[in-house]
Nucleic acid binder design. Structure first.
Length: 331
DNA sequence: AAACAGTGCAACCGCTCTGAC
DNA sequence: TGTCAGAGCGGTTGCACTGTT
């Protein structure tokens, strides 16, 4: 074993590639094909190590590489694939024609990861985490209303919810939502306080564990730390899992089991895309219903970057299409 | 206009895996 | 069975570009 010494030699050029070097590499590969990277630079007349040539070819010069912005569909695919595969960028890239693992990795780290964090979703586990949430952006949102916060209560730990309410009450005294603050305090938080130690606290792997309970004996579950392994291991099962069993899993996870009011404008804050993946897989639903929404139409038909950002952020809140009888899944 | 900070991405580093011998 | 080189992978760095003060 041991490291390959191919890049240790002196005299080999490093850094950005010039157009002349690109042409040499392309012409050589067009004639001789890719491979045998150690002798390739010498034969092609390049002062580069083979590894550098291989990376330049696979990440940039390959003719089947798609350049430019990631489409909405590609981005959603990346998020869903990452929730299953974790940081297996090459595996994700294999499912996105024309995109390289390096490109996907960069896009994840610079765009998607930050967006998930802003929406309070742990980018590693894809689970909701209030401690990651950008509360200031949410508290300033017109979508913040009583029903949303009541739903938050079912998912998040009570200390975090209190923090949100505290920020809310101090941010705008005139805000009509102050009423919900009082209502929540009277109806829920006091109760949570008295049962503080027993209150369900959302941890990143709770939902995964619930799903994973369908197959508790999978030996691979211990092989991928920090990854949503249970979801991965049960993907095959989920494809044949009835909606009711998925709903049962969520019911088990969501112990308050209130009659959550759901209407077309409501968002299920904090629900990770793993759940959407579960719904998709169990019911064979698609993004068509999502794309049919007005905001999606705006996105698809052309919009500003801010609008796209806003739309994607909303998606990450797991908007439940009206056409779905979600109560069948979650109640 | 200049300095500084933030962002995005190409390229590199260092490690592991795999197959030939 | 052990060793080695080639190849691949994920993480990190460096730098150009852009926005802000």
């Amino acid at each position: 074993m041991g490291r390959s010494p191919c890049c240790d030699k002196d005299g080999l050029k490093k850094g950005p590639w010039t157009p002349e070097e690109d042409i040499k590499l392309i012409q050589y590969i067009q004639i001789h094909g890719a491979g045998n990277w150690r002798i390739l630079p010498k034969n092609a007349g390049l002062q580069r190590c083979g590894k550098s040539c291989r990376l330049r070819w696979t990440n940039y010069l390959r003719p089947d590489i798609k350049r430019g912005r990631f489409s909405f569909e590609e981005e959603e695919s990346i998020i869903q694939l990452h929730s299953v595969l974790g940081n297996k960028w090459s595996a994700i890239a294999a499912r996105l024609p024309g995109r390289t693992d390096n490109e996907i990795k960069n896009y994840w780290n610079t765009h998607i990861r930050k967006r998930l964090l802003r929406n309070g979703i742990d980018p590693v586990t894809h689970a909701p985490r209030l401690d990651l949430l950008d509360l200031s952006s949410i508290l300033g949102s017109p979508q913040l209303d009583l029903s949303n916060l009541l739903r938050l209560q079912t998912l998040l730990n009570p200390q975090g919810l209190r923090l949100a309410l505290s920020l809310l009450s101090s941010s705008n005294v005139e805000n009509p939502n102050i009423l919900l603050h009082k209502q929540l305090q009277e109806n829920h938080l006091l109760e949570l306080d008295s049962h503080h130690n027993q209150a369900p606290i959302f941890q990143p792997n709770h939902f995964e564990n619930v799903v994973g309970q369908q197959n508790p004996s999978n030996p691979e579950d211990s092989s991928r730390p920090n990854q949503p392994q249970s979801v991965q291991n049960n993907l095959g099962q989920l494809s044949t899992t009835s909606p009711s069993s998925s709903g049962q899993a969520f019911q088990n996870y969501c112990p308050t089991n209130e009659n959550i009011p759901i209407d077309g404008s409501n968002f299920f804050y904090g629900v990770c895309d793993q759940m959407k993946a579960v719904v998709d897989l169990s019911e064979n639903s698609s993004f068509d219903s999502v794309l049919s929404t007005p905001s999606a139409s705006t996105f698809v038909n052309g919009s500003t970057e801010d609008e796209k950002e806003s739309f994607c952020s909303n998606l990450l809140r797991f908007e439940i299409p009206e056409s779905l009888d979600q109560l069948d899944y979650f109640m």
